[in-house]
Write a protein that binds this DNA or RNA. Structure first.
Lengths: 207, 207
DNA sequence: GAAGGCATGTAATGAGTTACATGATTAT
DNA sequence: ATAATCATGTAACTCATTACATGCCTTC
């Protein structure tokens, strides 16, 4: 259950009025969906899922470059249910596990989003880059260490992507494969950057 | 003033005790700093600044790839003051504008962070990539539009970076220039990806 | 049948976003 | 002297992160 569902949001009718004859449709004013919402909607397009299933689907794919905490994946479907974009069935007995499915409205919302322009700038949240930016205030040795760590990290991610690509290129959705291909190019670029940088640092030292 | 400074955090002494003779040092248990904190600390290393100054410094530089809302830049320094890592002076009269300076503890905290390993994965928050990933659930025409938009956006960012690089390469901090160079490589890579993708989409259409 | 990890969830806290508000300065 | 924009800040709300809690399943 969405634990903030009863927060004061917008008064749509006076509390003392008797129930109006309206058929209790979708919320009058829709919440503005965010990236998390669309990720959940998109993943549910592949079929009903529990939060844990979603967590898995995301971890293999989008989670590689855009992390979502597992509690987000437990909260967001509940919000989408409140929005009428997702429906939920609760297992009888046991842990009363919830399974979510996307509704027709949910599919429509996803399609509408896909049809919408995308003017937002990409954000690259890279602590390594931040550290490089402020390196003047630290030690030279730390910078070299940073470069080596970041190089290794991106090299290994790139390698992982390449393997994944081999395994799924023939079977997966073509656009998902494309996404992965951008991931590969990105990782290789950054890997190369740090490699070049290490080389520079080391050549300066010996001069 | 940090408007949540008086939230219940951790009781360090019973309220009824008379003031102990301790010299009221830094907070017993330090808040865990985050990226925003270090960005502010780093920017303050270049000299005292108001929040607006910080906003500017960030907008020209780090803000290009990692966005911070201006209210964050107003909140975070206040927290750092509470942490003892930043000091503040309040203008007398007028708007009682606050100017922040980094303290010795603040510099130490920044240096410590720079000396720390960086195992976190880079996050790339790109709505275009998300849309590509879920493109199977949308229209072909929307995908082509997406590709064109994203191509143009990255092309223009790359160009902007190149100009900036020309202007500052000789005068700015060497590591900051390096950061920019990674930005350029990144933008060029992504630009090229979308260009290739557009070409593919268009060649399929004519077959 | 106990240990350890997998699956499922909630609570508390802290951070980020959006919208609002308004004083100062500059340009017309 | 009015408008426009820059500079400065707060409030309300939403979202994300961290830590906790615990049932369920496998394996030894």
């Amino acid at each position: 259950m969405y634990r903030r569902a009863d927060h004061p949001r917008e008064v749509t009718s006076l509390p003392s009025e008797p129930a109006a004859p309206e058929p209790a449709r979708a919320p009058v004013r829709a919440r503005k969906l965010n990236a998390t919402s669309y990720v959940v909607l998109g993943m549910l397009c592949h079929g009903p899922a529990t939060s844990y299933d979603l967590k898995q689907r995301i971890a293999y794919t989008i989670g590689n470059f855009w992390a979502f905490a597992h509690s987000q994946i437990y909260d967001e479907p509940a919000r989408l249910v409140a929005d009428g974009l997702v429906s939920e069935t609760v297992e009888q007995g046991g842990r009363r596990k919830r399974t979510y499915s996307i509704t027709a409205d949910g599919r429509a919302a996803l399609r509408a989003w896909l049809a919408t322009p995308t003017p937002e700038q990409t954000e690259v949240r890279d602590l390594g880059l931040l550290k490089l930016f402020f390196a003047a205030f630290g030690e030279r040795a730390d910078l070299l260490q940073l470069a080596r760590d970041r190089y290794e990290s991106h090299r290994s991610t790139a390698e992982g992507y390449a393997e994944l690509h081999e395994r799924i290129a023939d079977v997966a959705d073509a656009w998902q494969v494309k996404t992965l291909e951008l991931g590969m190019r990105y990782e290789r670029t950054v890997e190369q950057f740090w490699a070049d940088f290490i080389a520079e640092l080391e050549s300066e030292k010996t001069e």
